[in-house]
């Protein structure tokens, strides 16, 4: 299911708003479901549960809203990154959207790069140290940036032509309906934890 950037942004605004209207638990559940990544879903459910238990035990359940917001926003980023048809960013932002498109294409690479580097460090018995771990990642980022500059130059030559295509497709419509549904649920059914 590929969605357009514009409607994904509207969906994101609905989700963010719902975390301010109420506790945002519906938004969090929806984003977890839309993630479709088993490991992340399990990790987030564990984080959400432990966080709630600890905060209730500490007598500060009203802080739980921040856990919900953090998880929801992280999920939103991953959902938008994977669902958006990147070329539709250009429909909205024009040529200025090109760096955004490229940045979104690279997040899976830098995610795997970071996990690889952490694994290599562990395999060499190097304890967690931000300075040491960031060194190879920075070097790799500079290398990628250099090559990207070349790719950008030779692939995107010519004059940019703006094509505005703002009509929603079926996926966009489903996303908007889900966003509206979450807003309505947040307005109608409030949780007692929220301040």
């Amino acid at each position: 299911m590929k969605t357009s950037f514009l409607y994904s942004m509207i969906f994101s605004i609905f989700i963010v708003l719902s975390t301010y209207i109420s506790l945002g638990i519906y938004a969090m559940i929806l984003t977890i479901v839309l993630l479709r990544r088993k490991t992340m879903i399990i990790t987030e459910v564990i984080i959400a549960t432990i966080s709630m238990i600890l905060l209730i035990y500490a007598g500060k359940p009203y802080l739980y809203v921040f856990t919900v917001r953090a998880l929801t926003y992280i999920n939103l980023y991953f959902i938008v990154s994977s669902m958006v048809d990147k070329s539709t960013i250009l429909d909205l932002l024009g040529e200025k959207g090109v760096p955004v498109v490229i940045a979104l294409s690279y997040y899976p690479y830098f995610y795997s790069l970071s996990t690889e580097v952490a694994f290599y460090a562990r395999s060499r018995g190097i304890r967690f140290n931000v300075l040491k771990l960031s060194r190879p990642i920075l070097v790799e980022m500079v290398k990628v940036a250099e090559n990207l500059y070349v790719a950008y130059t030779v692939k995107l030559f010519g004059k940019y032509s703006w094509q505005r295509k703002l009509k929603p497709n079926i996926s966009d419509s489903i996303l908007i309906v889900l966003g509206v549904l979450i807003i309505c649920l947040s307005l109608l059914l409030k949780f007692p934890l929220v301040g």
Binding site: K86, S87, V98, V101, I102, S105, N147, A151, L156, F157
Partner: peptide, 20 residues
Amino acid sequence: YSQILGETVKEEIKIIRRFH
């Protein structure tokens, strides 16, 4: 891996097409 502008060839072609 350091010269892709889109996640798929189809997506990258769509971007390139905006320029030429």
